[in-house]
Nucleic acid binder design. Structure first.
Lengths: 201, 201
DNA sequence: GTCTATAATCTGATAGAC
DNA sequence: GTCTATCAGATTATAGAC
């Protein structure tokens, strides 16, 4: 049940969002003109302004929509009580969610500086909420003694960075299947964080 | 002995490069005009063209210069024979080199899509050469049995991603000193790659 | 809701004076 | 080597016809 974003109901609205997503990801927000977006949709430039007040809102709606979807999907997941299981669950969730939304992921990381200050704060807050979810898992594991992480914030950022970077090189027709990629990163992350005690993971 | 890049000898040339580096990193290549760069330097826009044939060359020279410096610095390092020591050496080198060149690092990762195809191939080749250096260390360690990495290419990308991401959040006046950050990532990386055998690292 | 036309401004790059 | 002036075209956004 995908909720429509902002005022983009109807048919043309979503097509404008799709076109902007594709073009912003490929060429960058600043390098894409409203005429290009209109051309991709098949309308004239003026028609876009029936759906967005300006170009900035187009970018912001894309980024906020992406983060909203991410957090909504995360909340729908059942997080295991066991910290190790929760970590493995998160790794799989993160890879699967991001690999099918590569354009949006790219924009969410590359176009932050093109957001107005107020819009930046909103997106940054949502990103922070997502990071906090992983950090909470690491804290629970550290408290239970199954993870050995001197700084959970650093470990959180390290894990998310290495997982998100997959979206920049993974190809469905490449050397590795998605299952293989998941298995490898699962092993790397678990080994990176596991405690020195009995091998729980 | 910093070698001057391209035709940027003299005084104004380097100032143009510095201004472009700063502005491209802050606002993005496509969002910065030649007039803005000229204004930052304190000359008129036309004067820039005594130093660069066009805006694209300005970007390319920055990126190639950054990668050239990176590879030159890497070659000056003495790489230990022991794979574990070599890995630790690389982690420290990577963090130290990148943390003092945050603008250039940002540009090198964010503006690849704004390079012409030929220029992209050049920069991509240099980046690949750098990755190969780390991968060679991992392969040596895997062959010696001290590292447990099923896929050295994946592990290489994972390590570089988590290390480079430090540049996006580290602040000199922040919670952690650079030495602390180095120590933490050293521990994370070593643990992520170490073999199941006797704890060599 | 889409079109055409246009306002007002900015763009990269060049020519020629000094 | 820097300036001023300028070219030719693109930019976002708006106004009003249909």
């Amino acid at each position: 049940m995908a909720r429509t974003q902002g005022s983009f109901s109807g048919v043309t609205g979503p097509r404008i969002q799709d076109a902007a997503l594709k073009l912003f990801a490929r060429h960058g927000y600043a390098a894409v003109s409203m005429r290009q977006i209109a051309g991709e949709v098949g309308v004239q430039a003026g028609a876009l302004y029936n759906y967005t007040p300006d170009k900035q809102s187009l970018l912001f709606d894309l980024m906020r929509g992406h983060m909203d979807q991410l957090l909504a999907a995360l909340e729908r997941e059942d997080v295991p009580d066991d910290p190790c299981a929760a970590l493995r669950h998160f790794v799989r969730f993160h890879i699967r969610f991001h690999l099918v939304r590569r354009d949006a992921v790219f924009i969410a990381y590359m176009e932050l500086r093109n957001l107005s200050p107020e819009n930046f704060d909103v997106v940054e807050g949502l990103r922070r909420t997502y990071e906090d979810h992983l950090e909470a898992i690491l804290q629970r594991g550290a408290a239970a003694g199954v993870f050995d992480v001197p700084d959970t914030k650093v470990a959180t950022l390290a894990v998310i960075a290495m997982l998100t970077e997959i979206t920049t090189w993974y190809r469905a027709d490449g050397r590795l299947t998605q299952d293989e990629v998941e298995a490898q990163y699962l092993a790397l992350v678990c080994r990176m964080l596991r405690g020195a005690g009995p091998d729980a993971m």
